[in-house]
Nucleic acid binder design. Structure first.
Lengths: 180, 180
DNA sequence: GAAGTGTGTGAGTGCACACTTACAAACAAA
DNA sequence: TTTGTTTGTAAGTGTGCACTCACACACTTC
């Protein structure tokens, strides 16, 4: 009995976020996340109910980390205006996704929303983040909308590698985006 | 000889956009697009170089249609200011993606950008659209950036089905977005 | 009508992968 | 020490799917 099942679950979940982030749900065999977690494929099937159960749990972990980072970022805001708090939240999010895993996992999850459970999981994640952003920052609907619009733009920039493109149109799209 | 190969190619390409849009690259067998196009699987392999070749060609067709719609929309602008032209382009884009196929295909393509050829195809698509938007509308970098940010937000709204969510946070994110 | 060319398919082949089962070893309680 | 429980795995099994190949049909040209 080298580890408790619960402890295993969280380590597997975090590696699952990283592994699924690269190639997505359908293209990554559970063997890959098992190997990355250092356990056998059979055991991750015992820990989670099927590949889909693993992916859904990973989605939960992903949004947990995002929500925690944004909440922590809000605490470090320079002032109390919605603009300042939103700015601090945006900065925290930008730092968080510097390693790309959380960001890429989100786009992978969005791509599999034809599976209803995945759609609901993503919805739940955004519900949590959006309601927190709005209430904590005291921001208007339009400000919240803008916050998420530029967040989504950030997803495009990273997946397509726009920061590496030295052409004017790419520089226009990436202008002012914090170091993703 | 019921049809020329070139004519087949374009019909297969359009059905491929629709079929890949639902479940994505890895989850849709080429049998599915062959069946939807009404031909045998073996023949689509003769028409295109592998599943990846088919997907890349479909991506080209997808961005072709998007670029054409935006260009046509710009012609119908009410005036000459960047704001008016951008607005007309946005409206044309919103109409185009009413059937969801072109939009969903884009998010599926973004999810497979770990395949370098796909990343390059998506990059080429956005290069074409972004340079046209900027030059045709005479818009500033910030305006172009905003145009694409809200376009990406639109992708989130549709994939997650936010229009169907009657909660305040969802209404904030979807406010003012044209009937996606 | 024979030969050539382009369009189209049925029937495989081989492999990757989701998921199971039977079994083993560590630890706890009696 | 024995019995039971939990953690862990090796070795399958069945299926779905990318891709191929040999072959057939349509149509043209001579």
């Amino acid at each position: 009995m080298r580890s408790t099942a619960e402890a295993r679950r969280v380590t597997v979940l975090n590696t699952a976020v990283s592994v699924f982030a690269r190639a997505g749900f359908h293209a990554t065999p559970v063997t890959a996340v098992a190997a990355a977690a250092g356990i056998s494929e059979a055991y991750v099937f015992r820990l989670f109910s099927g590949k889909l159960g693993l992916f859904l749990a990973a989605a939960g972990a992903c949004f947990d980390r995002i929500a925690a980072a944004i909440e922590a970022g809000a605490e470090r805001a320079g002032g109390d205006t919605p603009e300042e708090i939103l700015d601090a939240m945006g900065g925290a999010y930008a730092e968080l996704i510097a390693d790309r895993d959380l960001l890429l996992f989100q786009v992978q999850a969005q791509a599999v929303t034809d599976i209803p459970e995945v759609a609901e999981a993503v919805r739940a994640g955004y519900r949590r983040v959006a309601t927190f952003v709005q209430s904590r920052a005291g921001a208007s609907d339009a400000q919240v909308q803008q916050f998420f619009a530029y967040g989504q733009l950030c997803h495009l920039i990273v997946t397509v590698g726009l920061e590496q493109v030295p052409e004017p149109w790419a520089r226009a799209l990436t202008a002012g985006i914090r170091h993703p």
